[in-house]
Computed example of a mutant assay.
Amino acid sequence: MSLLMFLLGLVTGAIALHIDEFNVYNYGASGSGEIDDSHAFVNAWRDACKVRTQYARVIVPEGTFLLNPLMFSGPCNPQNIHFKVLGTIISTGSPKSWNGRDPSQWIAFKDVTGLNVYGSGVVDGQGMGWWDQSCRDHPKLEGCTKLAPTIIKFISCKEGTLSNINIVNSPQTHVLIFYSKGFNVDNVTIQSPERSPNTDGIHIHSSQFVNITNSIIGTGDDCISIGDYTSNMDIANIECGPGHGISIGSLGKNKEVAMVENIRVHDSTLKGTTNGARIKTWQGGQGNIRHVTFENIVFDAVNNPIIIDQNYCDVRGTCKEEKTGVKINDVVYENLNGTSSSEIAINLNCSKFVHCSGIIMENITLVSIQEGNPVTANCTNAEGTEVGVNPGSCFKK
């Protein structure tokens, strides 16, 4: 290689790696945690989004930044736009702050390609005020709320990432990935109290090619929940608990058509959760859940380690029996072991009209958390095969 070519390569590399930075302090943010810094964040995002370079970065430095509900919208000019959080972002914590605003939303990114949200900082939803007036826990409270803000929403985002960040105390769901494609979540910590209502860790809906890896999630609801029209997901190396487990569904409510396929959950641990590997659908729905794999999972004092509930109802026993249902087939459970805190460690409760089929169970060992107590398997209207399963036998011969 000639010297000229070498120098041209260095210059080209330097140009390619150039990142324009937009620090919220330069836009008037106080970082005191007492003054609304929303305006500074909006303006920093505006300039980062419109700058005509390949890479741009919004920087949230050390400090505490109080934000009201915000929407960071694209499309943006840079090929990649980074949102680096080093400090702490907090909400007001007061439901009254949402008067006249969308009650489901706090921080949202919409129509952004190549978005990377990351950093060592904290995003704190300060959800206590919402929990104290939730209809689930306070049904007789006048003006109780059924809908509360999600901390971070990614709406119609492509080829994005969320990584190395702490997300805590959401009023409701912590992270929502919605109508997005090619999105990776890695090395995040999500935490809220075990009794906090409806605080799913990560919910995915109408999205494809989503990976969630190397994360610690403990909440008052599902650690990860997979909603409708979601496909090609890989979930790995998750520490889940407390919470309601890793769930597909619920799907098919109000006779809706569901489609979830190509989901793999593996190499993860669930500790002290109410459910483990769960699939839940409403009676009366239509569509399919198929090509699902749960493998290499450890359960530690989980109440329902393996569960399919094709007769899901928000108030058990009150839902009308229907002759249609979401079809569940081609589900693999392999190399699962650990302890159950209930007698029924495997419970496949499927519809008598739309059976679960193509269920494969291999190399499963589940025992009671109470040494010497038996555990059982219960499979109703489920068809499949099992090899090396304890407890067994589940399927009718």
Rank of each mutant, 00 (worst) to 15 (best):
D137A: 10
G31D: 03
C313I: 09
K327E: 06
F22K: 03
G87Q: 04
T88R: 13
D111A: 10
W130A: 09
I360L: 15
K84I: 03
I152G: 05
D200T: 12
D132F: 07
G33Q: 06
V292F: 01
Q126A: 05
T150P: 05
V168I: 14
N381L: 11
N349S: 13
Y25F: 13
T161S: 12
I107K: 02
F294Q: 07
I59N: 12
V185S: 04
V175F: 12
S342T: 09
T274F: 12
W131E: 09
I226R: 07
E159K: 08
I90F: 08
A44E: 00
R264T: 13
H355F: 15
D36Q: 08
K181C: 06
V42A: 11
K84M: 14
L7C: 07
K397T: 00
G252L: 06
N169W: 06
T385I: 15
S225Q: 13
I297R: 00
L7Q: 09
A277N: 02
V24K: 09
N329G: 00
G87K: 10
G245Y: 01
I190D: 03
N211D: 09
N198S: 12
L176H: 02
I297V: 07
Y27P: 04
E256C: 00
T113V: 05
S196P: 05
C49R: 06
L270T: 04
N80V: 14
L348K: 00
V326G: 13
K50N: 11
A277D: 05
F83S: 03
I19C: 08
Q370M: 12
Q105F: 01
T269Q: 09
P103K: 10
G317F: 10
T173K: 09
I15H: 09
V185C: 04
I165H: 03
D132C: 06
T376I: 10
I35G: 00
T339M: 07
C394L: 02
G201W: 06
I224F: 05
Q133I: 14
N254P: 07
L348C: 06
D102M: 11
E21R: 15
L10G: 01
I328D: 03
G325K: 03
K397C: 02
N187Y: 09
C379E: 07
P61N: 10
S104M: 05
V367N: 14
I279D: 01
G220A: 03
F41Q: 06
F183A: 01
K255H: 14
L17I: 08
E386S: 11
N363L: 11
Q310F: 07
T376H: 11
T269D: 12
G74W: 04
D309W: 01
P61Q: 03
G284F: 14
W106M: 10
G249V: 10
W131K: 04
G31L: 12
R195F: 04
D330F: 14
L141K: 08
Q191Y: 08
D111T: 01
V85E: 01
R136W: 15
I217R: 00
T230F: 08
